[in-house]
Amino acid sequence: MTSPLDLLLWAVLPYVTIAVLVGGTLWRFRYDRFGLSTRSSQLHESRLLRTASPLFHFGLLFVAAGHVFGLLVPKSLTSFLGVSEEMYHLGALVMGALAGCATVAGLAILMWRRWRTPAVRGATTRNDRLTYVLLGVVLLAGMSTTVLTNGVMGEYDYRETISPWFRGILLLQPDPALMESVPLTYKAHILGAMALFCLWPFSRLVHAFTAPVQYLLRPYVVYRSRGEGLGTRELGARERRRERQGL
């Protein structure tokens, strides 16, 4: 029997997170396009950023790819393809640890830089601080699952529990029972990640959703007519209300 807490954490919260993430992102794309920016601080400080930012971002892209692989690809498929349990485990451990270390190191330098460079510090908002803390927590918890739970302390096959649970969420068949036996480090990592995803649309992290891959396909020089887009910005809810009230 699943406890109400488990039900809340592993069957309700995931959907709340998805709703906030999707809804919040749509809201920002519609009403706060001007606010969507990396808010680059490279103008203020370049030396540290040039090592730390690629380290962090490329590390993170690997980590993200690893997550997709680990969570979405069912165990049956990899074993069908002839990947043994040991090979998979070793691969995940080594690659995950490497990418994770790069990401954590990158983030550490970025945070140090933010703290120590007066101009960058001045450009840091409260929202940024919260984002950094949460990002740090999720990353460290994630690293501890790989390095501690899954490395030093032995082996934990998350592909028997967490992965099916995650796919169940996506397939609208949540099974919170799968999460009951999961080690604490994993639980902390997942809960932290859900909090991060809730913050995502409202923080600077949205820039990740605007990654400009279309650049590869478009012609170099963009021409636009004066009329296009002129005054076509959609009004925010508040502005529309004002308009209706004739204010």
Partner: peptide, 13 residues
């Protein structure tokens, strides 16, 4: 304009 990956910069027709 050619460097802008988002296509935010443009030349007015």
């Amino acid at each position: 304009v050619a460097s802008c990956p988002s296509g935010a910069m443009y030349k007015r027709v």
